[in-house]
């Protein structure tokens, strides 16, 4: 039996007396994609930021099965170790591509920068890999020297994905990756994410409020309300046979197209 790639135990984050998230525990296995849904204010983004090390949780353990050092609690890592992890084995796709890109650097530079951060030095190989990745996310090679400011929202989001995945991470955090994009662009991005997850065997944690997105992308689902996980399970089971009152309300509130 394989071991979990990522284990979360009793993670909590408080904002003063208010609960950001509390009592969150789960195991994520290699190749698994987990969705986290809930309305705004339910604590899903707080949780994701705690897991990815952007926020410091007030309690709990966040264990990651590192390539070289075995299972480590990321909260106990040194800052350089955590930075190294976040640009090698981890990736974070922001809702707003501008938060994940360097807007003053060319598209190729955005992709190449992450490679250089892990030690790539030869210009021609870096550029070749950048071209390869732009192709994979369906950005024309001729745009490699353009800055992301000249890209549409959908292209920026695809560039952000290329920048994140070029180093071959094993765990990807995504915060509303399709939010703010129009539906035709969303569909294209979903298709792209699905095939990349399958080809690269990625594990991913996707925060979204869009139930249709999790149905297509996530194997399993956690539903959050007021900082707590109220229901978790297989994605289609949670959506088609919800057990908790809040999940039932959430599922029945979706407009049919």
């Amino acid at each position: 039996m394989t071991n979990p790639l990522f284990s979360v135990r009793d993670v909590a984050k408080y904002y003063g007396g208010r609960i950001g998230c509390a009592d969150v525990s789960f195991d994520l296995y290699p190749g698994e994609v987990m969705g986290i849904v809930g309305e705004s204010g339910s604590g899903k983004s707080t949780l994701l930021n705690c897991l990815a090390g952007h926020l410091t949780p007030d309690a709990g353990q966040i264990l990651f099965d590192t390539r070289t050092g075995g299972v480590r609690d990321t909260r106990e890592m040194s800052e350089p170790e955590r930075r190294m992890l976040s640009r090698t084995d981890w990736a974070f796709v922001h809702q707003h591509a501008r938060d994940g890109l360097r807007m003053s650097v060319s598209a190729g530079g955005n992709v190449g920068e992450r490679l250089m951060a892990v030690g790539a030095r030869r210009y021609d190989t870096i550029r070749a890999q950048a071209i390869d990745w732009l192709g994979r996310v369906e950005i024309d090679e001729s745009r490699i020297d353009d800055r992301p400011t000249a890209f549409s929202g959908g292209m920026q989001q695809r560039l952000q994905i290329a920048r994140n995945l070029v180093t071959g991470p094993r765990l990807v955090f995504m915060d509303e990756p399709t939010g703010g994009l129009d539906v035709s662009v969303q569909a294209r991005l979903l298709d792209l994410l699905r095939s990349l997850v399958r080809e690269m065997g990625l594990s991913a944690i996707i925060v979204t409020h869009d139930l249709a997105v999790v149905r297509l992308l996530a194997d399993r689902l956690m539903v959050m309300k007021s900082g707590y996980v109220v229901e978790a399970g297989l994605t289609d089971q949670v959506l088609d046979d919800p057990q908790h009152a809040y999940t039932q309300l959430l599922v029945s509130s979706v407009l049919q197209v």
Binding site: G233, L234, D236, Q237, D240, D241, Q243
Partner: peptide, 9 residues
């Protein structure tokens, strides 16, 4: 049938 598939609990 949905229970057999794991779609219903």
């Amino acid at each position: 049938m949905r229970m057999i598939y794991g779609n219903y609990l």
